[in-house]
Nucleic acid binder design. Sequence first.
DNA 1: ACCTGAACACCGTTCAAGT
DNA 2: ACCTGAACACCGTTCAAGT
Lengths: 211, 211
Amino acid sequence: MSRGPDTRDAIVVAALAYADEHGIDSLTLRGLGRATGLHHTAIYRHFRSKEEILNALFEQIAAESMASLGEVPTDPGERIIAIALALRAGLHEHPAVAGAYLQPEASIADSLPARQLQGLILSSLSELGLEGHALAQRYQILESYVLGATAFDFSGAPAHLESRRQRHRMADGQDLEAESRETDTIDLLNEEAFALGLRTLVSAFTRDAQP
Amino acid sequence: MSRGPDTRDAIVVAALAYADEHGIDSLTLRGLGRATGLHHTAIYRHFRSKEEILNALFEQIAAESMASLGEVPTDPGERIIAIALALRAGLHEHPAVAGAYLQPEASIADSLPARQLQGLILSSLSELGLEGHALAQRYQILESYVLGATAFDFSGAPAHLESRRQRHRMADGQDLEAESRETDTIDLLNEEAFALGLRTLVSAFTRDAQP
DNA sequence: ACCTGAACACCGTTCAAGT
DNA sequence: ACCTGAACACCGTTCAAGT
């Protein structure tokens, strides 16, 4: 483990890998200390609390998602979709973290990348022609859908796909059996469904904003 | 605390009240024992684990929501909306529980009330004219939206409204200030937004199913 | 059958003591 | 400045012993 100002980043990277492999519940300070070569109490030199580490994980993913965006579409509706899908993809790579921002103490909105994402969505909705109460409502729907549905879809990571598969199989006599054969299929269905729901919402918002 | 076969129910009721008042993280077996007059290890006579208690909380709320439904609308789209709003209302009464089903070990789908809700939604989508892959996708969107967005909206309970208020206020220069004055206003905005998103999705699904 | 008390193997966090 | 080791006040869970 390198010393100096990069130690904090190194802890975040190690914590991300640890959570991806063992699940967020298994991420303990003692385990993280072992993974980084630091004494577990030494981590408090870089983070005020474990909660701050979890917030940093989301911040890291949000920043990666923002960076992967690159050129952003000029059409405001497509821009919203691109941003949401980029964040979804970032959380898909680290599914164990997806539920972390629902912890009672989490404050993901305070981070800079989260603020940037929020600002991009808000200005896009504004470009669509929405304002005031109608804009606030639509923003809230998108935020709750993107972050909520993603947390729900990935909760239980890394075993989330298997439980989702069983949930589908459970719906016997309802023509879902063919959709529940493989966890890969479920993963694809999940991502397709998320994108379809997102497009459905954004299309409706675009229509709502028309005179 | 009454003995006998009702003890389990009494524990669930006490746990629900405890979580509502102190937050789900403060719900410990020792605290629950104190609240029920039972020794904390005696709880293991009624539940295999703490996880099983959390699942029972969701089950209880789902059952209450089902019971409050009463007469169900004949129109399949309106039926989906009524069911989803009933579950949302049940979780609104116990916001601290809303995040519990996102725990890595949660298995809410195994409970009878959850299965009943799922069956009602599936048959309603089928009545709309959806089938196979299209039906599975729409079901998945609704499940992820209803449970995910609700978990997200209520996460941090009982302090969730205050943090949500600050999140809105944070979006300065974006016309949200007027929406962020009171936590009551935020609560109303939340519920309005959830219902609007739900209706938007169901309307689109109804249209998709038309020939 | 149900409950009790002690114990086990963990947690996150603090803090005086080291370099 | 940064790290260490011991300790504190908790957890969920187990189990022999009680009634």
